[in-house]
Structure formats: structure tokens, C-alpha cells
Write a protein that binds this DNA or RNA. Structure first.
Length: 597
DNA sequence: AACGCCACTTAGCAGTTCAGAA
DNA sequence: TTCTGAACTGCTAAGTGGCGTT
């Protein structure tokens, strides 16, 4: 009846764990949603993450398939049949042959050492020199295989797709507190060669195959325990409701623990995400006080306090990461704020007409370069000079402090405050500020472009980079050509319009009048198309090495975007794709247009 | 305070899919 | 219908920060 009275053909209930939405579209109008119930903030205080948890355990990668008889590894120019285990490891290398990783000495060395460990005694005796190894034939075989896969018929591809879908349905979900939730990564990581980022000392090492005997399962004790693969046992089955993971194992290269966890769309993750932004909003209310506090620290008698004051200033102003200390030689040499070394900054009393400029140049997370020249407060500049006195380039800039101390003092200023909150706070504030400058008079494409601009401002602040797409230059050229063509068309159309007008002036017939109107329309359309292309060009150029996704997914309070969409009548689908809409379901459900971060 | 361990978020890349242009 | 480039998805490495122990 409700449907009929509204003249709506379709209506659906969207059932979240803590709210139910009734969703429908009235003809010619926007989508309506009626919300019953709401998301819960905070959650229980006792550290319990769930009451019940049931799942099927992780999905293992397929077993190794030996090479066909006519494909072989060559040593010293002669074909050599390897033992299954050694052959498998060799294929890892062979598959990567055209990647530049394999040309690096450390990569080769690490691989060769670990490979020899997997060989039989005889193989180890024989295969002593890496330079005599030839993986060419194996490599060609794998290239061929992937070609074949590409050339498969539509039907065959369909069958494969169906199979993965079935596996996802079986293993991709769990039951948490009685609700079906998507799992983030339900597959055990397959064996292979470790590829670190940047100059990683462990690149090329063998990442071993994980067996059920390595895996700890976590589920509730009254649930059906996942079945290990035939002939195998789990390492342990535990029932720990203070953690959110479903399974874990220790990885052999770095000795770190890997987890199977829920998808960001889950209630558990969503509420945590929400909480994160609430803390950042709390910082917004206190940030002025906190800024005064660290400015006072710049003058402290205690060197430790001064260093802290300057470090927090960097974290706040430049959105630097905290910079935990890392084990030397175990990972790539990267730093964050607290681990900055003297060699990473250069002080300029004056630079390009600005006073007190600090030049930063260091590798941050994922070995992404941070390069920036920033004019700073005079007192900060003086302090930095002081911190650098009598130090070697490789000494710590902030030698009296570390992230634990810094976070402890931050927590004293505001409960829940840590270094990373500043990044969230500054990112979200920047987005909101930038968006508030926009007007509703813009046309659609312009609105979206402006949103991207705002997003980009944040990405630049957080130094989120990407390697320029391989096809960038070419696609840019193509676009340029299109623009030139459009320009030419426009010029022609304009000339035609002019002619039509003068014709009309000479003999004012109805037919010629219509022609003028027609040509005017044509010119207008072409102008719009040209403008659109030019916008696209700027957008793409500015986006060349900037990654927008990271900030969108991790730093920008989605409620800002949702509110903006509502206010300016932009469909949310233009801003967030399906995955993102799932992740931010909590925000989409509860935000109206006057939300303020 | 130093250390080691653990749990969780944040990050860029590569392969795949999709949509619009030719 | 085919081709091309962008968007999306999955993957897993690399951070942050808390806690208990010494």
C-alpha cells in the first residue's frame, strides 16, 4: 500500500546489524531512505570484540604443479631436472625474470642462498654459482601459459569465474554475533619470493608455504570449529574474544604475524573507523590549546621538551608520521618525524625570498620520498640549529625523544590523542575547508573536478604518491590531439555562424533565421565540449604522481563528503565506488547535509 | 626506560574489469 | 564490435601504538 500510494515500483529493505533502511525512489526524484534504529558508537568498554564468531578457516593456495617434461632448468648450459621442492622455488624466480627486481644483486643473493637451502644434498653440491643458472626456458613456459589463459574462450573464463565465486561464498564470510560479515583476506598468502619496497635488505628471500600446522584459528568455543584440510591439523584453536582476527600465522621472512580479518564493510571495522574520526573531531576542539602548549615548549629549559615541541609542530603542520624506531638492517632505511636524522634536513636562513626555510629530504613509509621546503617559525628554526649542533649527519635529530614519550604527552593533553590523529584531523579539516569554497552554481563536471582538487590538496599534504601510469605520456598526447581537433571544429563552426548571420542580415527569411540558431547551438555545444576536455587535461596532469585513494579511504571523514553530496545534489556514486560505499555505509546512513566535521 | 610482542591501520602496486571512443 | 585507458580489486608490505615483562 505504501508503495502504491507513493507511486513507487520498487522498494527495498537494507538490513545492517544496527539499523534497517527502507530505500525507494519516487519517479523523477532522488532516492529516499528511511532509517529505523541507528549505528552504535563506542561499543563495550571491557575490550570484548564479539560474543560469537564462526567461520570456515582460511583458504589455502593450490599445491605446486611440477613442470612438464619438456621444460627444464639449465645449469652450466645443460638441462637439469630438479627435485620437486627445489623446482618450485626455481619457478618463483623464473616467473619474475622480466621484473627489474631480479637484476638487483641483493635480490639474487638472497634468493640463491634460500634456494640452496631447499635443495637436496646432491643439488646443493652441483649448483654453486648463480651465474651458471638459466631460467630462460622456464620463464618462456610461464609467459606462454599466461598467454594461453588470456586467449581462453568466453565459456572457459565463465567457468573459472563461477568457481572463484563459489569459493568466495564458502570461505569469504563469517558469522560474527550472528551477523554474516565479509572477510577481508580469506586466502593464506601463497609462497613466493619476498619483494620489499625500496632498498630492502631481505628482497628475494623465500617466503615459505604456510601449512595448516602453522595456523592458529580463533573462533568462539560454542561454534563449529573450522575443518583443517585432510590429513592436517591446526597449530592451535583458541577462543579469544578480545581480538578481531579469525586466523593467524607467523611469516618466515620478517618473523611478523599475519592475520585473517574482517572486510572494512563490517560493523566491527566500521565502528572503529567512526571512532577514529570522532577522536579527530575532538582534536579539532582542543587543537588551539595544544598548539599553544607546544609553542611554549619551544622555550623550555628542558631539551627533551623543546624537541618534543618541535616534533609535534612538524607532525601538526606537515602531517609527518610519528616515526617509530626500526631494527637496523632488517628493513629499508626509512624514517618518520621522531626518527629523522640530521642528514634529512637542511636549514636556510633565507631561500627564494623567504626566511627560516627548512628543506626536508628523506624516505618515508614505503620508501616514498618526502621533499619539501617549508618556512618555519623563527623559534623553531633556532631550536633546529641547536639540535643539530655537534652532531654527525647520521645522528638522530630528536635524540632525546621517541614516539612512546611523544604519544604519552599527547595523551595527557587529550584522551585518545596520538601522533597519527593529527594526520586524520588535518586531512579532514583541509577537505572541509576546500569544499566550503565551492558554490552550487557550478555545473556537474566542475563540481566533481573541484572535489578532486580538494581531495588532491589532502593527498599532497599527506604525501600520497604513485608512479605515473606507464601510458601517461601517450594518453596525454592523445588528449592533446583531441583538444586540437575540437578547437578546429569550433573555429569552423564559428566561421559558419558568422556567415549565416551575414546571410540572414541580407535576406531575413525564416529559414536563414533557423540556420543562425542552429549554428549558435553548435558553437555553444562545441565550446562546452572543449572546456570539458581542457578540464580533463588539467585534472589528469595534476594527478600524474598523486594518489587520491589513500586519503579518501583512510583520512577523510566520509561524513564530510556525504554531506557535501547532499548539499550540492551530487549523487554519492560519483564520489564513492561500490567498495567505498560499503566501507562508509555507516556514514552514508547517518549523515545529513549540515554535518560539520 | 628498554624491550619484545601483538594487533590493527595505512600504503602502493599489479592484474583485471569496465566503459566509452573509434 | 573492437580497442584503449581508466577505474577497481586484491594483495601484502610497512607503518602506528598498546601492553606486559624485565
Amino acid at each position: 500500500n505504501f508503495k502504491q500510494s507513493l507511486g513507487v515500483s520498487q522498494m527495498c529493505f537494507i538490513i545492517h546489524s544496527k539499523c534497517i533502511l527502507l530505500r525507494y525512489t519516487q519517479p523523477g526524484q532522488q532516492v529516499h531512505k528511511i532509517c529505523f534504529g541507528r549505528w552504535e558508537e563506542g561499543r563495550s568498554q571491557d575490550g570484548k570484540k564479539w560474543k560469537t564468531l564462526e567461520h570456515k578457516g582460511p583458504l589455502f593456495p593450490p599445491e605446486y604443479e611440477p613442470l612438464p617434461q619438456d621444460v627444464s632448468f639449465y645449469y652450466n648450459g645443460k638441462p637439469l631436472r630438479l627435485s620437486i621442492v627445489a623446482e618450485e622455488v626455481a619457478t618463483f624466480y623464473a616467473k619474475m625474470l622480466d621484473h627489474e627486481y631480479t637484476s638487483k644483486e641483493i635480490f639474487q643473493k638472497n634468493f640463491f642462498t634460500d634456494w640452496r637451502e631447499e635443495m637436496t644434498a646432491e643439488e646443493r653440491d652441483l649448483i654453486c654459482e648463480f651465474s651458471k643458472c638459466d631460467f630462460g626456458e622456464m620463464h618462456r613456459y610461464f609467459v606462454e601459459q599466461s598467454e594461453k589463459k588470456k586467449d581462453m574462450s568466453k565459456e572457459e573464463k565463465e567457468v573459472l569465474k563461477e568457481e572463484t565465486k563459489k569459493l568466495t561464498e564458502e570461505y569469504g564470510y563469517c558469522l560474527l554475533d550472528g551477523h554474516k560479515e565479509k572477510i577481508g583476506n580469506f586466502r593464506v598468502e601463497p609462497p613466493g619470493l619476498f619483494r620489499g619496497r625500496g632498498e630492502h635488505p631481505k628482497m628475494g628471500k623465500l617466503k615459505k608455504r604456510i601449512l595448516p600446522e602453522d595456523i592458529i584459528i580463533n573462533c568462539s568455543n560454542d561454534s563449529k570449529t573450522p575443518e583443517p584440510p585432510k590429513g592436517h591439523k591446526w597449530k592451535e584453536v583458541r577462543h579469544d574474544d578480545t581480538v578481531t582476527w579469525l586466523a593467524s600465522w607467523v611469516e618466515n621472512v620478517q618473523g611478523s604475524i599475519k592475520y585473517i580479518m574482517l572486510n572494512p564493510s563490517s560493523k566491527l571495522k566500521g565502528e572503529k573507523d567512526w571512532q577514529k574520526y570522532e577522536i579527530a573531531r575532538k582534536l579539532k576542539l582542543k587543537v588551539e590549546t595544544i598548539r599553544k602548549e607546544y609553542e611554549r615548549d619551544w622555550k623550555s629549559k628542558e631539551m627533551k621538551k623543546r624537541q618534543k615541541g618541535v616534533a609535534v609542530y612538524f607532525i601538526d603542520k606537515l602531517a609527518l608520521r610519528a616515526g617509530n624506531e626500526k631494527e637496523e638492517g632488517e628493513t629499508a632505511d626509512t624514517v618518520g618525524c621522531c626518527s629523522l636524522r640530521v642528514e634529512h634536513i637542511t636549514l636556510h636562513k633565507e631561500l627564494d625570498g623567504q626566511e627560516c626555510v627548512v628543506e626536508f629530504d628523506f624516505l618515508g613509509k614505503d620508501s616514498i620520498r618526502y621533499y619539501n621546503k617549508v618556512p618555519v617559525d623563527k623559534r623553531v628554526f633556532k631550536n633546529l640549529k641547536l639540535f643539530m649542533e655537534n652532531k654527525n649527519p647520521e645522528d638522530d635529530l630528536f635524540d632525546r625523544i621517541n614516539t612512546t614519550y611523544l604519544n604519552k604527552t599527547l595523551n595527557n593533553s587529550m584522551t585518545g590523542l596520538t601522533a597519527k590523529v593529527f594526520r586524520t584531523y588535518n586531512a579532514s579539516t583541509t577537505l572541509q575547508e576546500q569544499l566550503s569554497k565551492l558554490t552550487s552554481r557550478m555545473w556537474h563536471a566542475e563540481k566533481l573536478l573541484s572535489y578532486n582538487r580538494a581531495n588532491r590538496a589532502v593527498a599532497i599534504l599527506c604525501n600520497h604518491q604513485r608512479t605515473a601510469p606507464k601510458t601517461f605520456e601517450k594518453s596525454m598526447q592523445n588528449l592533446q590531439q583531441k583538444i586540437e581537433l575540437k578547437q578546429k571544429q569550433l573555429d569552423e563552426a564559428k566561421a559558419e555562424l558568422k556567415k549565416a548571420k551575414s546571410d540572414y542580415r541580407e535576406s531575413k527569411t525564416e529559414k536563414l533565421k533557423r540556420l543562425v540558431e542552429q549554428k549558435e547551438k553548435m558553437v555553444k555545444r562545441l565550446q562546452e565540449q572543449l572546456k570539458k576536455l581542457q578540464l580533463q587535461m588539467t585534472d589528469r596532469e595534476e594527478n600524474k604522481v598523486i594518489a587520491l585513494g589513500t586519503s579518501k579511504l583512510n583520512y577523510l571523514d566520509p561524513r564530510i563528503s556525504v554531506a557535501w553530496c547532499k548539499k550540492f545534489d551530487v549523487p554519492i556514486e560519483k564520489i564513492y565506488n561500490k567498495t567505498q560505499r560499503d566501507k562508509f555505509a555507516w556514514a552514508i546512513d547517518m549523515t545529513n547535509e549540515d554535518f560539520e566535521f
